[in-house]
């Protein structure tokens, strides 16, 4: 079995079958991660290049480990020390890397659509590791994997996504993916960060946190990016926490067996309180582990895609 496309640019264009295939394949890779020898020979001789135009610790490390555990060679191109500072365009940089023999190019870029652009212009498999405010598909896939693992299925679950939906590529990928799998999505946050137009994608929009959290099976909190502060989206981080921060008291509005998720990095005391982040309902660290399995599955399945 393989994915229908040579690239993974987003969940918007991924079929439900393909999403399920990735999730099922990831379960097999999670077995591998539990062993003493956490490496399999499946993609020996292939090369993965991480091309990151934005800072990243967990996603880049996760992709690097995933690629290494499949036995591919991995090269990390850090843009600040590359020809990009000499004025090379994205396309030229990527084509140069492809000419060196890269099979997989994992790209993160501040511009929405960067991954699509490369996918159209390259023969290598392009994997989107976050493009602007558009999509971050592997994060949403690992979220879906975690939900399926813990709750059995996604269909019918009420998933509350709280925070900066407007700028969040994680939220967008999750909205596309979870909707396809039949979840009911509630978006919660200040009106400046959760415009009503998001309702057109399927979810319902709430500005009152307690109301939005009611009966939620999953609460996904998003990072409030500090660079947004002082730009008029909300008065202060203190006030944000007061209105939309996830606290153990607020969590009581949700279902008793609610699961708390966060894509990281967290700002404790801004979007989530420490007792919730470290509490028994939190699966935040398991999300990180599952991310590795999901990224292995994506690399593996793309390597078989028809050109």
């Amino acid at each position: 079995m393989s994915l229908r496309s040579k690239d993974l640019t987003g969940l918007k264009d991924l079929s439900t079958d393909d999403i399920n295939l990735i999730i099922e394949t990831a379960a097999g890779f999670k077995d591998v991660l539990g062993r003493d020898i956490k490496k399999v020979p499946a993609l020996r001789g292939r090369t993965t290049v991480n091309l990151f135009y934005e800072p990243s610790t967990r996603t880049r490390t996760s992709f690097e480990l995933a690629a290494k555990r499949l036995s591919t060679d991995v090269i990390n191109v850090s843009v600040s020390t590359s020809s990009v500072v000499k004025g090379e365009t994205l396309k030229d940089t990527a084509r140069t890397i492809e000419a060196l023999g890269a099979d997989f190019i994992v790209v993160r870029h501040a511009c929405s659509g960067a991954a699509h652009f490369l996918a159209d212009n390259l023969g290598s498999s392009v994997i989107n590791a976050g493009d602007g405010t558009n999509e971050h598909p592997t994060q949403a896939l690992l979220d879906i994997f975690t939900i399926k693992e813990k709750k059995g299925s996604v269909a019918g679950l009420k998933v509350a996504i709280v925070g900066d939906i407007l700028h969040s590529r994680v939220a967008k990928s999750n909205i596309y993916g979870l909707t396809k799998l039949g979840a009911e999505i509630k978006l919660i946050g200040p009106p400046t960060l959760v415009p009503l137009c998001f309702g057109d994608l399927g979810p319902s929009v709430y500005y009152d946190m307690d109301e939005g959290l009611k009966d939620a099976d999953i609460v996904m909190t998003l990072r409030i990016q500090s660079e947004r502060q002082g730009k008029g989206f909300f008065p202060s981080t203190d006030e944000y926490f007061k209105n939309w921060g996830l606290t153990s008291k607020r969590l009581l509005k949700a279902k008793e067996d609610v699961m708390v998720m966060h894509p990281g990095p967290m700002n404790r005391g801004v979007e989530i309180s420490s007792d919730v982040a470290d509490g028994e309902r939190s699966v935040i660290l398991e999300q990180v582990t599952n991310g590795l399995a999901v990224r292995m599955a994506v690399l593996y399945l793309l390597s078989g895609a028809k050109q």
Binding site: M1, S2, E24, T25, G28, P41, A42, L301, S303, G304
Partner: peptide
């Protein structure tokens, strides 16, 4: 599946 010798030859990846 991950140990097969035909992974690089097949068009479709074996199911994991």
């Amino acid at each position: 599946a991950l140990y097969r010798d035909d992974i690089n030859v097949r068009k479709e990846q074996p199911v994991v």
